[in-house]
């Protein structure tokens, strides 16, 4: 029998035991964003024809919360284990590097999805639920959780201190998620920033996810799927290579 189910179970209960901090708090944060931005901008901004600003904001906030929490799950789990030294308990058993990756990845997707779902349910208080293409949304949600969960594993492996992980979070994850069209359509940006945004994989995740809600998007959903999928495959390959070589885990 493999150690994979147990490692996955441990990853799930790790965040579930502190559910208020890992699930409820990010949902409340997203609700605050919705409240503030919708009140401040609802009557001034029109993004898509026939879609009011609050409705436009919902998929962006759901996806942003999902992505940030997927990243936080794997990265914080790894850095805590490394710093407290208990990473040794999962390095000593016969768990393969692929099983290791899969357990942390699924744990991240799960937490991201729980937070994303919670945010979406919370938005029902403001906007009636509406999903035009649920399969597209689900696909992008899973892909987004996978991409940022993998990035969290890479960051957790690379970081040796909480400071380094915080830098990763503040200077990479936050700009990627905030400058991705959560609060606006990239077509409203000046050409320079519009072109920059096209290099941000998170933009494609949010745009594709939003297509599932309204059937409208800045980029064709298939293009977004290919770009985000390509990034996921490339980052997963890097992550698996690091794990196989034991980079910063097995000296």
């Amino acid at each position: 029998m493999s150690g994979f189910p147990t490692l996955l179970h441990k990853e799930l209960i790790r965040f579930w035991r502190v559910w208020f901090q890992t699930i409820v708090a990010p949902i409340i944060t997203a609700m605050l964003y919705l409240l503030i931005f919708s009140h401040a901008l609802a009557h001034r901004v029109s993004v898509y024809p026939g879609v009011d600003y609050i409705s436009f904001l919902v998929p962006g906030l759901v996806m942003m919360s999902l992505l940030q929490n997927a990243f936080a799950n794997s990265s914080s789990s790894l850095i805590q284990s490394k710093i407290t030294g208990n990473i040794v308990f999962v390095l000593l058993p016969p768990i393969s590097w692929f099983e290791f990756y899969a357990a942390y990845l699924i744990g991240s997707i799960f937490r991201g999805a729980m937070v994303g779902l919670g945010v979406w349910l919370g938005t029902w208080l403001f906007v009636p639920p509406h999903l035009q293409h649920p399969v597209w949304s689900l696909l992008f949600a899973l892909l987004g959780g996978g991409l940022l969960g993998t990035l969290g594993i890479v960051a957790g492996i690379w970081s040796e201190k909480f400071d380094q992980l915080a830098a990763f979070q503040n200077f990479i994850i936050m700009p990627l998620t905030f400058l991705s069209g959560v609060f606006y359509s990239i077509h409203s940006l000046p050409t320079f920033w519009l072109n920059i945004s096209r290099f941000n994989p998170v933009f494609y995740l949010i745009d594709g996810f939003r297509y599932g809600f309204f059937g409208i998007s800045d980029v064709a959903p298939l293009t977004s799927l290919l770009v985000a999928g390509g990034c996921f495959v490339a980052l997963s390959a890097l992550c698996l290579l690091l794990l196989q070589r034991g980079y910063k885990l097995r000296h």
Binding site: G3, L7, R17, G85, V88, F89, P94
Partner: peptide, 29 residues
Amino acid sequence: GVVPQELAFDPFLTVRETLVFQSGYFGLH
């Protein structure tokens, strides 16, 4: 089986859970 020198532990778990999880990592459920 290795008893490491450093005193490491998982702060989320009880003693029994620690052992059940460690057993599970070896595929012994």
